[in-house]
């Protein structure tokens, strides 16, 4: 498995949390564009729909509350 390590250290300056967050965001964007291209399209394969493997969907809070209410009544 190919691994690639890019390491940067910024020295001589105290960065604020906002600056660190901005740097992390910019790096994440550059990496994403390098991997997916400049105009990334949404992907699909028949298998994704066949197996319904669409990750973590949260149950709406209202529905959870309603279910909890129903459970306490029974």
């Amino acid at each position: 498995m190919a691994d690639h390590k890019f390491e940067f250290t910024l020295s001589g300056v105290h960065l604020s949390e906002a600056q660190k967050s901005q740097i992390a965001s910019e790096i994440a964007l550059v990496v994403t564009r390098a991997v997916t291209g400049n105009s990334p399209q949404a992907l699909s394969t028949p298998m994704w729909s066949k197996v319904n493997i669409h990750g973590g969907k949260m149950i709406p809070e209202a529905l959870l509350a309603a279910e909890a209410g129903a459970a306490t009544k029974t």
Binding site: S21, A28, P40
Partner: peptide, 20 residues
């Protein structure tokens, strides 16, 4: 880490976050 700024950046660059 995911921040609103990061999500906005992806959106502005046309990257569908929940797909790519």
């Amino acid at each position: 880490p995911v921040t609103q700024e990061l999500l906005d950046t992806f959106e502005q660059n046309g990257i569908p976050p929940e797909n790519r």
